[in-house]
Each structure stands twice: as C-alpha cells, then as structure tokens.
Design a protein around this nucleic acid. Sequence first.
DNA 1: CCGGATCCGAATCGATACTG
DNA 2: CAGTATCGATTCGGATCCGG
Lengths: 238, 238
Amino acid sequence: MAERRYGQYCGVTRAVELVGERWALLIVRDLLVGPRRYTDLKRGLPRIPTNILSSRLKELQEGGVVRRVPLLSCGLVYELTPYGRALEPILLALGRWGFQTMGEPQEGDVVTSDSLTMALRTAFRPERAVDADYELHVGDVALRVVVRSGDLRVSRASPEAGPEADAVIVADTGVRRLIGGDVTPAEALARDLLTVVRGDERFLGAFAATFHIDPVTATDTPQGSPGHGSPGPCDPAT
Amino acid sequence: MAERRYGQYCGVTRAVELVGERWALLIVRDLLVGPRRYTDLKRGLPRIPTNILSSRLKELQEGGVVRRVPLLSCGLVYELTPYGRALEPILLALGRWGFQTMGEPQEGDVVTSDSLTMALRTAFRPERAVDADYELHVGDVALRVVVRSGDLRVSRASPEAGPEADAVIVADTGVRRLIGGDVTPAEALARDLLTVVRGDERFLGAFAATFHIDPVTATDTPQGSPGHGSPGPCDPAT
DNA sequence: CCGGATCCGAATCGATACTG
DNA sequence: CAGTATCGATTCGGATCCGG
C-alpha cells in the first residue's frame, strides 16, 4: 500500500499525495466539523465503501493529517491533527469555488449534516453578519444556526425541543440560490424555493446578508507571465 | 466517460469532482504559470500517461476550468478560464501546506520549471520583499527571478545571455530548507546546501526574507463545535 | 451496534506503441 | 505536434463477514 507518487519535488504535489486520493478531502471536510467515529464518517459519506474509508483513514494517519483517539471505555474517534486543521481555509475556499457551479442536485444526491455545516461556514460573512438564531432544514438535515456578534455556531437541531430559534427555515436545496444571490429573499418566498414555517419572514433578509457567496472573483492577471512562453509569438485565433 | 460522482450536494464535493481526479490539480498548477501546449504539459508532468493527460484536459474543459485556444497557424494551447484561474489562491495555499512536510526528495523526483515557479509564488512575501534580481538553479531548471517594488516576476533564464542577474544561486533542493527557515543563509552556505556562484552572498539574506513559508499556522479553534458531538461525553484517553 | 477485514467484478490508471 | 489504441496492473465499489 505504498502511497501513489507523482515523482515531483513540489509542495502542491506533496499536498495532493497526502489528501488527493478519492474521498480523502471529504473525510477531512467532515472532520473539520468535529471528531468523528468510524461509523459517523460512514453515515456522513453514504457511498464510500468501507474498505476505502479504512484505507484513507490509515493513509491520513501516516500523513500526519488525522489522529486516532481512543475514548475511555467509549470506543474511539478520528480527529484532525493541527496539521490537518490547517487545511480548513483551503477547504472553505474549495467549497466556495465549487459552490458556484453546483447547479441543481442530481438524482440520488444527499445533503449531510456535516456538508451543510461546512457550506454555511464557507458562505459566512462575519463583516455583514446579522445576529440571529435559525433552525435550518434541508433535505432531512436539521441544523441550529446561531449567529452572534460576528461569530457562527452550527449544531444539530434537537428534534424534541421545538420552539427555540427565531425562525425556522425549510429550504430543500433552494437555499443555494439564496446564498448564491440568484434570487432575493422575496423572490425565493414568492417562487416557493423555501418557506419560513415559524418566525418573521424578514429573518430571511438577515440570513441572506449573513450567508453569501458571490460569483467567481478570478484574479485578473492577464494570464501568465511572458518569458515562460513556449507558445511563442502567435496570436490566438477568434 | 461520465464523471465519477460522490452523490453529495455540496460545494466541496463539486470541487473535487471537477479537479480532484489524479493529475488534474498538477495540470492546473502548470497552467497557472501560463498557457501551455499539450507537449509542454507532457514535459512538465514527465510521469503522466498521455491518455490520462488527454482525458483530464477533456474533463477540465467540460468542467469549464480549461479552454482550448487555437493559435493562428501555430498549433494550439490550453489555458485556464477565469473560473479556473480562481483556483490560484487555493493552489498557492495547498502548495504552502504541502511544502511543510516535503522532506528530502525521493529517488527519481524531478523539479520542473512550472512547479518551481509556483513554489516561489507560494513562498513570496510581498510585505517583506527586497528588490533584487536572481538567477536560480535547481536541478536542471534555471529561472530568472525578479523582485521589484513588492512584485514578483519569474521567467525562464535565458541560457546564452549570462551576466544579467544580481546573483546566481545554485541550490539543488537545498533551497527548501532556506525557504522553510530550517537554516539561516549563513548556515546554508556553510553546510554547502547551496552556493552563490556569482554576485554578493548577501543576496541570500534578501532571498530568504523575500521567500519564506512558516511552519503550520493551524487555526486554533478547540477542535470542532459541541452539539455535533456524536462521540458524547467521553474524555480522550492519554 | 462498533470497527473494521475479506473477497470479487468493474472501472481507472500506467506504460508503451502507434497515427494523422 | 497532438493526440488515440491497446493491454496488464491497480484501485475502486459493493457486498458480505467477523470479532468485540
């Protein structure tokens, strides 16, 4: 099980050797939410084969990204090492980047608690954040989302204790267009992309201000430096 | 050739579906330096099978990451779309992350012009940059590295025109320890990790100030939020 | 239930050869 | 220069099984 190498002495190469294998970054994504048991990971990644999960965890441990922590008489959990946690800004940026071309969900796609939590983190704008307390339902995931003084805290919504949040938003995948700015809160309500089942509908404005991802933001360097130009002095056609 | 899906409706998932396949991010890395021909990419990725390069380029085009641009009577090049270029900060961060655990080169590892260029970009500190003009040799790659008023420009060193740069640094892979801060410029010279074949050796101090990657920088959130805690109220052992 | 290990067919990857 | 074709080696996916 020697790790598959690319044969280059380079930081990017080393990085993709550590976390570039199939499923690895999704495991890291879930572990960024918190330590997880083997079974939690399996539930959060419904289509991962168990032998692959097992291999990845082993490789991530060898790479110093993940640590295996036994709990006193309670089984064990996997958690990120400090080195693994340093991937957080990278995964948030990757999530923002991928968000922009997500389109509509494909048949069979699921939304998991951890992926939705990370999605909210990627979209969170501390500088525009409006204090509020939401309960957000997407698919069959229900999260409690508390925004307070520029800080975001996401946890699972407790099923029994009902009337706690300021607003309960039910938004099966339509929340993407709100966060992406494709629709205004009013439009989203009018087109029934989501509903506010309890609390003032105006909390939707606060939500849209707090969670937002704008389209692209490419660095507009004029595409590469000259001097590397193997292409030479030819103009692009069209 | 249907893209291999993970079955999750999530930004990170979408991102790894677009650029997570083997070799894809290394292709993007090279294209971040500038538009490249098929053959350039092949030379820059010596161990990529040509059919894989072909497949990846096709997939990256379908994903809107790469564009195929015919040159007037001069063949064609691949270049990043604006969406693809938006990966630049992510690849730079990944490069910094991987850099920290690169260790010594393995047998057969190569350093390519594009990978070294990107490595310099990942390590570049505009705020500490000292204006200078280097010629940097690593392996059989020779780059011209010009730092001027907080700006970095890297190009291939022209083999014939010799005496141009302020200093010529020859540093087969030892430059990693200098950039990583493992050694001071003086130590690097004393231990013969690199040599300054022309120009004042003090340019090495400028170089080390300008190009630097420090160890880790993990966000020190106390490891995940409570409320997600399936692990429950058990203390970690040890 | 938890934490995997094992087995096997299907898909992908790697290496080389070949072509317009 | 810019790929396609072929084929064996690996890896992945899906299912089952097993010890605590």
